[in-house]
């Protein structure tokens, strides 16, 4: 299976581990993620102003690139890209006048027809590959691993753009189960990590990190799986002062790649901090990637 893929700027810079583990794991599942040849920054945050079409140009231009590639889906794994692209795709699907305006403005491009379905990687795993298939391809079951599934804000909000009904947090839990680990439910599965407040109001993010980590820990989790580079960065960076609450943060795609037994350089666990690596090591999951650092 071949699917159009937009990694996003952060996955090409700070979060290369998310990009590389994603592509390698999907290859192991016989899904070829075909990166769009010319993609733009998605715009990062969906613009709320009803008449601010200027900030819908970037996401819609990306949808045109996906349309040019010939498929009917565009896959992303960064939660922010997903949210921005998904909501832009819905906006123009439901408002033909806005779509017309954008198409008229982008007179150098073919018209966007409104038919690209923006999907998050978890949806691809659930709907296109299937949990049973994934389970069948697991080489290293993640035994004895209690993983808190942290969805963050943007995979379930707003409900029109959610990967599943917001009162039904299942996709990441089901994946964790398929990989042989134990998913841990905890009260803060969709609590915002503080997001961009990290820049202007870091204390908000520190408090959120404390709240999220402590509720995950109280619920019995040993590590937290995330899909968003900003959640990953916030939870990882801000736990340094949190002593007992410290807990490894990992991209769900790294867990997937680990379980599928892809080349250690591609599951990218060498990029995780030392405590995360030695934790995975202690679980017997990292035999091949302890060299770094």
């Amino acid at each position: 299976m071949k699917l159009s893929y937009l990694p996003g700027c952060t996955l090409k810079t700070k979060a290369q581990d998310l990009d590389l583990s994603t592509v390698a794991a999907m290859e192991a599942l016989d899904v070829e993620l075909e990166e769009l040849p010319r993609w733009n920054c998605c715009g990062t945050v969906f613009s709320f102003a009803d008449d601010d079409l200027m900030h819908q140009i970037a996401p819609v231009r990306n949808l045109i690139r996906a349309q040019e590639q010939g498929g009917d889906k565009l896959v992303t794994v960064c939660s922010f890209c997903f949210n921005t692209l998904k909501r832009a795709s819905l906006l123009v699907k439901e408002n033909s006048d806005k779509l017309d305006t954008l198409n008229t403005f982008m007179d150098e491009e073919e018209d966007y027809t409104g038919n690209i379905n923006v999907v998050h990687l978890l949806e691809v795993l659930r709907d296109e590959v299937g949990w049973d298939q994934i389970e069948g391809k697991v080489q290293n079951p993640l035994k004895d691993l209690k993983v808190a599934a942290y969805y963050g804000c943007t995979l379930h909000r707003p409900k029109e753009a959610a990967i599943e009904p917001p009162n039904k947090l299942e996709a990441l839990n089901d994946l964790i189960t398929a990989l042989g680990a134990t998913p841990v439910d905890f009260p803060d599965m969709t609590t915002c990590c503080g997001s961009y407040q990290a820049v202007a109001n870091p204390e908000i993010v520190i408090n959120r990190t404390r709240e999220i980590l402590s509720s995950a820990k109280e619920s019995g989790a040993e590590m937290i799986a995330v899909s968003c580079p900003l959640c990953e960065c916030n939870l990882r960076e801000n736990q340094k002062e949190l002593g007992e609450l410290r807990m490894p943060i990992i991209y769900f795609t790294q867990l997937l790649a680990l379980a599928l037994g892809v080349d250690p350089h591609l599951h990218q666990c060498e990029k995780n901090p030392a405590d995360a690596r030695s934790f995975l090591e202690s679980k017997g999951l990292l035999a091949a990637c302890t060299a770094a650092e």
Binding site: N40, C41, G43, M54, H55, I57, A58, R61, M106
Partner: peptide, 22 residues
């Protein structure tokens, strides 16, 4: 940058300016 592409369209040397910024 909002990916308006006005830069690439005006470039007399056909530099894909918007893509370069991306």
């Amino acid at each position: 940058c909002v990916a308006c592409n006005a830069c690439s369209k005006i470039c007399p040397m056909d530099v894909p300016v918007m893509d370069v910024i991306a």
